[in-house]
Computed example of a mutant assay.
Amino acid sequence: MMNKLIFGRYIPGASFIHRMDPRAKLLGSFYFIAIIFLANNWQTYAVLAVFTLSAAALSKINLRFFIRGIRPLIWLILFTVALQMLFTQGGAVYFQWWIFSITEFGVINGLFIFCRFVLIIFMSTLLTLTTPPLALSDAIEYLLRPFKVIKVPVHEISLMLSIALRFVPTLMDETEKIMNAQRARGVDFGEGNLIQKMKAIIPLLIPLFVSSFNRAEDLATAMEARGYQGGEGRSKYRILDWQFGDTMVMLLFAALTAALIFIRS
C-alpha cells in the first residue's frame, strides 16, 4: 500500500537523535554507509547491528517504521542476494546445475549482503524520520558550500532536494487516493497476471502526472509571489547549531571504525 511507504516522512519527537544537528546526522549517515564495507565477518556485522539498533532505540521511534523502509526494496535485496549465492564460488558445494551453483562462500556472502542492505536502510530511514526536510536541505547546503568556488549552484541543489523529499509522501498519498477512487469504480489492482497488473496501473499515471504538474505550478507561483530570487544575499531563518553531543557522536563513529578494523578477519 502506498500509504505504508515512509521514505521522506518526518516523525516529530524530542529524542536525542531528533535534537542532533542535521549536519551531524547527515555526515554520520554517509560515514556509516562508507564504513559498513569494512565488515567482513559475523562479529563486525553484529557490532554494526548493535550500533544501528541502539541509534533506533535512542530515536524513540517504533521499530515497525524501520521495517516499513525495507518492504519497498525487499525484491531488489533478495535478487542481489540470489545473484551472490548463485555466482560466488568457494567452499563446500551444496547445489549445482548447469552454470549455477550454491556454495558455502556464496551463502555467507549472500547473508552478508542482506545484512548490509538492511543496516543501510535502517540508518537512512533513521535520518529521514528524525530530520525535517527543511533542516536536511540546510545541512546539505552548508556541507556543499566549498563547491561554490567552482560555481556549483549549491542553494538551488539543496532547494530541489528539499522539495523532492517534501513531496514524496504527498505524491504517495495522492496515488493512494487515486487508487481508492479507481477501486470504487470496480478496478482490481491485484487481479490477473503481471502484464494485466501493469496495465491496471497505467490509468493511475495520467491523473498523477496532471496533479504533480499542477502542484509544481502552484509552488512556483507561490515562490514568485514571495519574491524568491535564489540564495544570494538571503538571510537564514533557521540557524544550525552544532552541540557538544554532535561532536561526541562523531567520536563514537570514529570508535566504531576502530572496532571494525580491530575485529575484522
Rank of each mutant, 00 (worst) to 15 (best):
T247G: 12
T221K: 13
A220K: 03
G245F: 14
G230F: 07
G227E: 03
Y237F: 14
A225T: 05
A220G: 02
D241S: 10
T221H: 10
G227F: 09
G227N: 02
S235Q: 03
F244R: 09
S235G: 04
W242C: 10
R234Y: 01
A222K: 02
L251T: 13
A222P: 01
K236V: 14
D241H: 11
R234C: 02
I239S: 00
D218R: 13
D218L: 15
A225Y: 04
K236E: 06
Y228C: 08
S235W: 05
V249F: 10
V249A: 07
M223Q: 01
A222E: 01
I239C: 02
L240N: 00
L240I: 05
V249Y: 06
G233Y: 06
G245S: 09
G245P: 09
L252D: 06
T221W: 13
W242N: 07
E232W: 14
L219M: 06
M248K: 11
D241V: 14
G227R: 04
I239N: 00
R234A: 02
K236R: 07
F244Y: 08
G227S: 03
L219W: 08
V249L: 12
D218Q: 10
F244H: 07
Y237N: 05
M223L: 07
L240S: 00
M223R: 02
G245W: 15
W242R: 11
R238F: 12
E232R: 11
R226S: 03
M250C: 12
G245E: 11
L240W: 01
Q229I: 14
S235Y: 03
G230L: 07
T221N: 10
D246E: 04
G233C: 09
Q229Y: 12
A220D: 02
K236I: 15
R234I: 11
F244G: 05
